[in-house]
Simulated scan of single mutants.
Amino acid sequence: MAKKKSANEAQNASKPITNLKDFFIDGLKDIYWAENTLVKTIPKMLEQATDQKLKTAFKDHLAQTKMQVERLEKVFESMGVKPEGKKCLAMEGIIKEGEEIMEETAPGPVRDAGIIASAQKVEHYEIATYGTLAAFAKTLNERAALDLLLKTLGEEKKSDSLLSSIADTNLNSQAVDGKLQSKDLNAV
């Protein structure tokens, strides 16, 4: 029995991408969907986190993500393209994995460590995506888009570094036994 094609599959089958500009716009749509989805997902992670530094990081990152959505809208505008999202299957999978981690772990340091692991997967995907899109913008001589994408790329790298720092400040050590430990371990 033949599987019915989704609307995206049907659209892609009828009109293949044949140039870098169209591929660039397709990538923008992908990350635009991802960032808008993260605006809805980060509050769930914030609610499930117990470490105060982690909660603060998520509050700050939510505001930053909203700004990144606005920045992407400016990228679309600079190119004369209507902002629209295209479901990002990679981000959808990373988010689902993070939701499973939150469901399968008890509140506390172990869940917090899992949330950080999930959030860093998100950051790494975003870093890869924004780096690639910036390279495309540079090649296409889309200077306004390039500047905006590089600003977001820098923020994503800082967010990843902050998450590593939070994990290394005794949180992962607390997760060893699932409870607070009294010894203060230095980061590796």
Rank of each mutant, 00 (worst) to 15 (best):
I116P: 14
I116M: 15
I116D: 14
S118T: 09
A119K: 09
A119G: 12
A119S: 14
A119C: 14
A119H: 09
Q120F: 11
Q120V: 13
Q120M: 13
Q120A: 12
K121E: 03
K121V: 04
K121S: 06
V122E: 08
V122P: 06
V122A: 13
V122S: 10
V122Q: 10
V122G: 05
E123N: 08
E123L: 09
H124A: 07
H124W: 01
Y125P: 05
E126R: 14
E126M: 08
E126H: 11
I127K: 10
I127C: 09
A128L: 04
A128F: 05
A128K: 06
A128M: 08
A128N: 05
A128V: 06
Y130F: 11
Y130D: 04
G131M: 01
G131R: 00
G131E: 01
T132M: 04
L133C: 08
L133P: 03
L133T: 03
L133G: 06
L133R: 07
L133K: 02
A134K: 04
A134S: 09
A134D: 01
A135F: 02
A135H: 08
A135Q: 06
A135Y: 05
A135D: 04
A135C: 08
A137T: 03
A137L: 06
K138V: 01
T139G: 06
T139M: 11
T139R: 06
L140T: 05
L140Q: 03
L140G: 01
L140Y: 03
L140C: 03
L140P: 02
N141A: 09
N141Y: 03
N141V: 09
N141E: 11
E142R: 01
E142K: 00
E142Q: 03
E142Y: 04
A144Y: 02
A145T: 00
A145C: 00
L146I: 02
D147M: 08
D147N: 07
L148Y: 09
L148E: 07
L148C: 05
L148P: 03
L149Y: 00
L149I: 01
L149D: 00
L149F: 00
L149S: 00
L149A: 00
L150E: 10
K151M: 10
K151V: 04
K151H: 12
K151Q: 10
K151D: 08
T152H: 15
T152E: 15
T152V: 15
L153F: 14
L153I: 12
G154W: 15
G154P: 12
E155L: 13
E155H: 14
E155W: 13
E155C: 10
E155V: 08
E156M: 14
E156V: 13
K157G: 11
K158H: 12
S159R: 11
S159N: 13
S159D: 09
D160N: 15
D160A: 14
D160V: 05
S161R: 10
S161E: 14
S161V: 12
